[in-house]
C-alpha cells in the first residue's frame, strides 16, 4: 500500500511563489491499494478537485470510497470538481460521522452544489452516491481485507482520524488535532463530558491516540502550528506534539502535514529540522508532506 498526497495545506488552498515547493492545495489523500479495482480517498480539499479534473468525467465503471474526517471548507471544497461524480456509471461511498446532530454530511455535500454557489447545473452530479454514517471509534472493512479504524480527534465538531490496514501494512491520517490540555476540549459535547474529571479525560484521549497509532508504518499528522505560534483552541497540532505521539506509539514514519497557509517552503523545512533528531532517537523517520509525493505504508 502507498499513500499519495494530492493536497497538503491546511485552512485554505493558497498560491504564493514562496510555498509552491510543498504545494498550496488543501487536504486530499489517496490510499493506493495494489490488486484492488476500487479507489480509496480521504477528504475532498482542493487537491482532490485537481486530481478529479484530470481524471475527467469519462472515468467510468469505478467505485470510489471516501473517508471523511470532517466538513470544514479546506476538506470539502474539492468535491464538486471531482469529475468522476458526473458519470452515472460510477459509484461513491462516503464514510462520515459528521456532525450527527446538526448538519449532516449529506446536507453539507449537497449544500456545496446549491443553486447560486456554483456555475454548473446541479444535476451534473450523476454518480450513485451512498453516505454511510459511522460512529467515532467504529471499525470498517472495505472489500473483505481493507481494515479501517477510526478515532475522534480534538477538533471542532466530530473529526475523525483514520487508520487503514492492508496486506500487513498500515497508514494513518490525523488531520486537525489540537493538544488536549488545560481544558482545551474541542470535540462536540467534550466540555460537558470532561467537566468532572478533566485530567483523566485528557489522559484517556492521549493514551487512546497512542494506542490507535501503535506500530503504524506511516502516519500523516497535523503540524499546522509550531510550539512558538501554537493557538491550541484553533484545533491544530505542532511537529513536537506529532513526534511525541508517534514516538510513543513506535510509528515508523511521520509525515508532517496540514501546513499553515502562511508557511513558506523554508518554514515547512524548518519544521522537519526542529524534530528530526528527536524522531531519530526513537527510530522515527520524519518528513514533510509535499503535494504529488507518494509514500509507502511500510
Amino acid at each position: 500500500m502507498r499513500v499519495k498526497l494530492h493536497g497538503v495545506r491546511g485552512s485554505r488552498p493558497t498560491h504564493k511563489n514562496s510555498l509552491l515547493g510543498y504545494g498550496g492545495n488543501s487536504t486530499s489523500i489517496q490510499f493506493l491499494l495494489p490488486g484492488k479495482d476500487f479507489e480509496l480517498y480521504l477528504d475532498g480539499g482542493s487537491g482532490l478537485a485537481h486530481h478529479g479534473l484530470r481524471l475527467g468525467s469519462q472515468t467510468k465503471n469505478r467505485k470510489f470510497y471516501f473517508l471523511v474526517t470532517h466538513t470544514h471548507w479546506d476538506h470539502m471544497i474539492g468535491y464538486p470538481f471531482f469529475a468522476p461524480l458526473y458519470n452515472p456509471n460510477n459509484e461513491f461511498v462516503f464514510y462520515t460521522s459528521s456532525p450527527l446532530e446538526k448538519d449532516s454530511f449529506e446536507k453539507l455535500f449537497y449544500g456545496q452544489l446549491a443553486k447560486g454557489h456554483l456555475p454548473f447545473p446541479r444535476d451534473l452530479v450523476k454518480a450513485k452516491i451512498e453516505i454511510k454514517l459511522i460512529k467515532p471509534g467504529e471499525k470498517l472493512v472495505i472489500d473483505t481485507d481493507v481494515h479501517v479504524s477510526t478515532y475522534q480527534l480534538n477538533h471542532q465538531g466530530i473529526t475523525l482520524g483514520f487508520r487503514v490496514e492492508y496486506q500487513g501494512e498500515s497508514a494513518a491520517v490525523i488531520t486537525d488535532n489540537a493538544p488536549i490540555e488545560n481544558g482545551n476540549h474541542l470535540g462536540e459535547h467534550w466540555k460537558e463530558l470532561a467537566k468532572d474529571n478533566s485530567a483523566q479525560f485528557e489522559k484517556d484521549f492521549n493514551d487512546g491516540l497512542v494506542r490507535f497509532l501503535h506500530r503504524c508504518n506511516t502516519v500523516i499528522f497535523d503540524t499546522h502550528f509550531t510550539e512558538e505560534n501554537l493557538k491550541a483552541d484553533w484545533g491544530h497540532s505542532t511537529p513536537h506534539r506529532a513526534t511525541k505521539f508517534c514516538s510513543d506509539a513506535q510509528v515508523g514514519r511521520l509525515i508532517l502535514f496540514h501546513h499553515a497557509p502562511e508557511d513558506t517552503d523554508q518554514a515547512v523545512a524548518d519544521k522537519v529540522t526542529s524534530v528530526i533528531n528527536i524522531g531519530k532517537s526513537a527510530g522515527l523517520e520524519v518528513v514533510a508532506a509535499r503535494e504529488g509525493d507518494e509514500w509507502p505504508a511500510k
Binding site: 488552498p13 493558497t14 498560491h15 509552491l20 474539492g78
Partner: peptide, 19 residues
C-alpha cells in the same frame, strides 16, 4: 485570477492560482 477552484502550482506562477 482563477475561476472555480484555486490552482496553486509552479505551472501557474505567472497568471496566478488563487480564486
Amino acid at each position: 485570477t482563477r475561476a472555480l477552484i484555486s490552482s496553486p502550482s509552479k505551472d501557474t506562477k505567472v497568471y496566478g492560482g488563487n480564486t
